[in-house]
Amino acid sequence: MSRAALLMLADGRFPAGGHAHSGGAEAAVAAGRVRDAAGLREFCRGRLHTSGLVAAGLAAAAAAGADPLVLEEAADARTPAPALRRVARVLGRQLLRAVRVTWPSAELDALAVARPGGAHQCVVLGVAGRSAGLSPLDVAHVAAYESVSGPAAATVRLLGLDPFEAAGVLAGLAAEVDQVAGRAAGAARRVRAEGVAVLPAVSAPLLDIAAERHAVRRVRLFAS
Protein backbone atom coordinates (compact mmCIF):
# COMPACT_ATOMS: atom_id res chain seq x y z
CA MET A 1 0.00 0.00 0.00
CA SER A 2 0.97 3.61 -0.48
CA ARG A 3 0.48 5.76 2.57
CA ALA A 4 0.74 8.90 0.42
CA ALA A 5 -2.15 7.67 -1.76
CA LEU A 6 -4.24 7.28 1.41
CA LEU A 7 -3.44 10.83 2.47
CA MET A 8 -4.30 12.15 -0.99
CA LEU A 9 -7.67 10.41 -1.07
CA ALA A 10 -8.59 11.72 2.38
CA ASP A 11 -7.34 15.23 1.69
CA GLY A 12 -10.11 17.82 1.51
CA ARG A 13 -8.16 19.49 -1.32
CA PHE A 14 -8.42 16.40 -3.51
CA PRO A 15 -10.56 17.70 -6.40
CA ALA A 16 -13.67 15.59 -5.78
CA GLY A 17 -16.21 18.30 -4.94
CA GLY A 18 -16.95 17.36 -1.34
CA HIS A 19 -16.58 20.97 -0.10
CA ALA A 20 -20.04 21.88 -1.48
CA HIS A 21 -21.73 19.50 0.96
CA SER A 22 -22.23 19.67 4.70
CA GLY A 23 -23.37 16.08 5.30
CA GLY A 24 -26.63 17.26 6.82
CA ALA A 25 -24.96 19.76 9.17
CA GLU A 26 -26.56 22.80 7.51
CA ALA A 27 -30.06 21.38 7.98
CA ALA A 28 -29.27 20.52 11.61
CA VAL A 29 -27.93 24.03 12.24
CA ALA A 30 -30.96 25.61 10.53
CA ALA A 31 -33.32 23.53 12.71
CA GLY A 32 -31.45 24.62 15.84
CA ARG A 33 -30.29 21.09 16.62
CA VAL A 34 -26.60 22.05 16.35
CA ARG A 35 -25.61 25.33 18.03
CA ASP A 36 -22.05 24.83 19.28
CA ALA A 37 -19.06 22.52 19.39
CA ALA A 38 -20.84 20.12 21.75
CA GLY A 39 -23.79 19.86 19.35
CA LEU A 40 -21.40 19.33 16.46
CA ARG A 41 -19.70 16.51 18.36
CA GLU A 42 -22.99 14.71 18.96
CA PHE A 43 -24.09 15.28 15.38
CA CYS A 44 -20.81 13.87 14.06
CA ARG A 45 -20.94 10.92 16.44
CA GLY A 46 -24.45 10.02 15.24
CA ARG A 47 -23.50 10.39 11.59
CA LEU A 48 -20.29 8.38 12.03
CA HIS A 49 -22.05 5.38 13.58
CA THR A 50 -24.91 5.38 11.04
CA SER A 51 -24.30 6.61 7.50
CA GLY A 52 -20.53 6.76 8.11
CA LEU A 53 -20.44 3.08 9.08
CA VAL A 54 -22.65 2.15 6.11
CA ALA A 55 -20.46 4.08 3.64
CA ALA A 56 -17.30 2.61 5.15
CA GLY A 57 -18.68 -0.93 4.82
CA LEU A 58 -19.68 -0.47 1.19
CA ALA A 59 -16.36 1.23 0.35
CA ALA A 60 -14.34 -1.50 2.06
CA ALA A 61 -16.32 -4.20 0.23
CA ALA A 62 -15.65 -2.47 -3.10
CA ALA A 63 -11.96 -2.22 -2.23
CA ALA A 64 -11.97 -5.93 -1.41
CA GLY A 65 -13.19 -6.67 -4.92
CA ALA A 66 -16.95 -7.21 -4.45
CA ASP A 67 -19.05 -6.53 -7.57
CA PRO A 68 -19.60 -2.73 -7.64
CA LEU A 69 -23.04 -3.11 -9.23
CA VAL A 70 -24.23 -5.41 -6.44
CA LEU A 71 -22.89 -2.83 -3.97
CA GLU A 72 -24.77 -0.10 -5.86
CA GLU A 73 -28.03 -1.97 -5.26
CA ALA A 74 -27.09 -2.45 -1.60
CA ALA A 75 -26.29 1.28 -1.33
CA ASP A 76 -29.65 2.25 -2.85
CA ALA A 77 -31.48 -0.05 -0.42
CA ARG A 78 -29.58 1.59 2.46
CA THR A 79 -30.37 5.12 1.23
CA PRO A 80 -34.14 5.58 1.25
CA ALA A 81 -34.04 9.38 0.88
CA PRO A 82 -33.82 10.24 -2.84
CA ALA A 83 -32.03 13.52 -2.03
CA LEU A 84 -29.22 11.50 -0.44
CA ARG A 85 -29.11 9.02 -3.34
CA ARG A 86 -28.75 11.98 -5.70
CA VAL A 87 -25.98 13.57 -3.63
CA ALA A 88 -24.15 10.24 -3.37
CA ARG A 89 -24.21 9.91 -7.15
CA VAL A 90 -23.17 13.51 -7.83
CA LEU A 91 -20.22 13.11 -5.47
CA GLY A 92 -19.50 9.68 -6.94
CA ARG A 93 -19.40 11.08 -10.45
CA GLN A 94 -17.00 13.86 -9.44
CA LEU A 95 -14.76 11.46 -7.54
CA LEU A 96 -14.75 9.02 -10.44
CA ARG A 97 -13.70 11.77 -12.85
CA ALA A 98 -10.80 12.69 -10.56
CA VAL A 99 -9.55 9.18 -9.76
CA ARG A 100 -9.72 7.94 -13.36
CA VAL A 101 -6.99 10.48 -14.09
CA THR A 102 -5.12 10.05 -10.80
CA TRP A 103 -5.10 6.24 -10.56
CA PRO A 104 -6.30 4.97 -13.94
CA SER A 105 -7.57 1.40 -14.02
CA ALA A 106 -9.81 -0.87 -16.08
CA GLU A 107 -12.12 -1.31 -13.08
CA LEU A 108 -12.73 2.44 -12.79
CA ASP A 109 -13.37 2.65 -16.54
CA ALA A 110 -15.84 -0.24 -16.32
CA LEU A 111 -17.70 1.44 -13.47
CA ALA A 112 -17.94 4.70 -15.45
CA VAL A 113 -19.41 2.79 -18.41
CA ALA A 114 -21.87 0.83 -16.25
CA ARG A 115 -23.02 3.93 -14.34
CA PRO A 116 -22.93 6.93 -16.70
CA GLY A 117 -25.17 8.89 -14.29
CA GLY A 118 -22.75 8.30 -11.44
CA ALA A 119 -22.22 5.55 -8.88
CA HIS A 120 -22.53 5.99 -5.11
CA GLN A 121 -19.51 7.87 -3.80
CA CYS A 122 -18.60 5.12 -1.33
CA VAL A 123 -18.55 2.50 -4.08
CA VAL A 124 -16.35 4.71 -6.27
CA LEU A 125 -14.10 5.34 -3.28
CA GLY A 126 -13.63 1.61 -2.78
CA VAL A 127 -12.81 0.90 -6.40
CA ALA A 128 -10.49 3.93 -6.44
CA GLY A 129 -8.70 2.66 -3.35
CA ARG A 130 -8.20 -0.66 -5.09
CA SER A 131 -6.68 1.11 -8.09
CA ALA A 132 -4.43 3.13 -5.79
CA GLY A 133 -3.23 -0.01 -4.01
CA LEU A 134 -5.01 0.70 -0.74
CA SER A 135 -6.46 -1.94 1.56
CA PRO A 136 -10.18 -2.25 2.42
CA LEU A 137 -9.34 -1.01 5.93
CA ASP A 138 -7.59 2.09 4.51
CA VAL A 139 -10.60 2.90 2.39
CA ALA A 140 -12.96 2.35 5.33
CA HIS A 141 -10.90 4.88 7.28
CA VAL A 142 -11.31 7.43 4.50
CA ALA A 143 -15.10 6.93 4.36
CA ALA A 144 -15.51 7.01 8.14
CA TYR A 145 -13.35 10.11 8.47
CA GLU A 146 -15.16 11.89 5.63
CA SER A 147 -18.48 11.25 7.36
CA VAL A 148 -17.39 13.60 10.15
CA SER A 149 -14.83 15.92 8.54
CA GLY A 150 -17.38 17.33 6.06
CA PRO A 151 -19.90 18.37 8.73
CA ALA A 152 -17.12 19.77 10.95
CA ALA A 153 -15.69 21.97 8.17
CA ALA A 154 -19.17 23.11 7.15
CA THR A 155 -20.13 24.03 10.71
CA VAL A 156 -17.13 26.34 10.97
CA ARG A 157 -18.71 28.37 8.16
CA LEU A 158 -22.33 27.93 9.24
CA LEU A 159 -21.93 28.88 12.89
CA GLY A 160 -18.70 30.81 12.70
CA LEU A 161 -17.35 28.11 14.97
CA ASP A 162 -13.70 28.40 15.98
CA PRO A 163 -11.81 26.13 13.52
CA PHE A 164 -9.59 24.92 16.37
CA GLU A 165 -12.68 23.77 18.25
CA ALA A 166 -13.98 21.98 15.18
CA ALA A 167 -10.62 20.24 14.79
CA GLY A 168 -10.81 19.35 18.47
CA VAL A 169 -14.17 17.68 17.86
CA LEU A 170 -12.63 15.55 15.10
CA ALA A 171 -9.63 14.67 17.25
CA GLY A 172 -11.98 13.64 20.05
CA LEU A 173 -13.76 11.26 17.69
CA ALA A 174 -10.56 9.71 16.32
CA ALA A 175 -10.81 6.50 18.34
CA GLU A 176 -14.42 6.02 17.25
CA VAL A 177 -13.48 6.63 13.60
CA ASP A 178 -10.87 3.87 13.93
CA GLN A 179 -13.44 1.59 15.54
CA VAL A 180 -16.04 2.20 12.82
CA ALA A 181 -13.45 1.62 10.08
CA GLY A 182 -12.43 -1.64 11.75
CA ARG A 183 -16.04 -2.85 11.99
CA ALA A 184 -16.70 -1.89 8.37
CA ALA A 185 -13.60 -3.69 7.10
CA GLY A 186 -14.47 -6.73 9.23
CA ALA A 187 -17.93 -6.91 7.66
CA ALA A 188 -16.47 -6.38 4.18
CA ARG A 189 -14.24 -9.43 4.63
CA ARG A 190 -17.36 -11.59 5.00
CA VAL A 191 -19.08 -10.35 1.82
CA ARG A 192 -17.46 -12.87 -0.51
CA ALA A 193 -18.77 -15.82 1.51
CA GLU A 194 -22.02 -14.41 2.90
CA GLY A 195 -23.18 -11.69 0.51
CA VAL A 196 -23.83 -7.97 0.99
CA ALA A 197 -26.41 -8.53 3.73
CA VAL A 198 -23.51 -8.68 6.22
CA LEU A 199 -22.66 -5.04 5.51
CA PRO A 200 -23.96 -2.50 8.04
CA ALA A 201 -27.24 -0.75 7.15
CA VAL A 202 -27.70 1.57 10.13
CA SER A 203 -30.00 4.49 9.46
CA ALA A 204 -30.37 7.92 11.08
CA PRO A 205 -34.02 9.00 10.82
CA LEU A 206 -33.33 12.71 11.22
CA LEU A 207 -30.62 12.73 8.53
CA ASP A 208 -33.15 11.27 6.07
CA ILE A 209 -35.99 13.57 7.13
CA ALA A 210 -33.83 16.71 7.16
CA ALA A 211 -32.12 15.92 3.83
CA GLU A 212 -35.41 16.14 1.95
CA ARG A 213 -36.38 19.38 3.67
CA HIS A 214 -32.97 20.87 2.91
CA ALA A 215 -33.15 19.85 -0.76
CA VAL A 216 -36.14 22.14 -1.35
CA ARG A 217 -34.85 25.13 0.64
CA ARG A 218 -34.33 28.16 -1.56
CA VAL A 219 -31.57 29.73 0.50
CA ARG A 220 -28.74 27.46 1.51
CA LEU A 221 -24.98 27.50 1.65
CA PHE A 222 -24.39 23.81 0.95
CA ALA A 223 -26.03 21.49 -1.57
CA SER A 224 -26.65 18.89 1.14
Binding site: R33, E42, F43, R47, H49
Partner: peptide, 25 residues
Protein backbone atom coordinates in the same frame (compact mmCIF):
# COMPACT_ATOMS: atom_id res chain seq x y z
CA UNK B 1 -35.89 -10.99 -5.82
CA UNK B 2 -34.22 -7.55 -5.90
CA UNK B 3 -33.15 -5.80 -2.73
CA UNK B 4 -35.51 -2.84 -2.18
CA UNK B 5 -34.82 -1.70 1.37
CA UNK B 6 -32.25 -2.66 3.97
CA UNK B 7 -32.23 -0.65 7.18
CA UNK B 8 -31.00 -1.10 10.70
CA UNK B 9 -31.79 1.03 13.69
CA UNK B 10 -30.08 0.97 17.05
CA UNK B 11 -31.23 2.97 20.06
CA UNK B 12 -30.53 3.10 23.76
CA UNK B 13 -27.60 3.04 26.17
CA UNK B 14 -24.28 1.95 24.63
CA UNK B 15 -25.36 2.98 21.12
CA UNK B 16 -23.12 5.97 20.28
CA UNK B 17 -24.93 9.06 19.03
CA UNK B 18 -28.42 7.52 19.06
CA UNK B 19 -30.03 10.51 20.79
CA UNK B 20 -27.95 13.17 19.06
CA UNK B 21 -28.98 15.76 16.48
CA UNK B 22 -28.35 13.42 13.53
CA UNK B 23 -30.48 10.53 14.79
CA UNK B 24 -33.34 11.18 17.24
CA UNK B 25 -32.54 14.52 18.92
Amino acid sequence: GRLLLDQQAGYGPDVPGWDGPAVLA
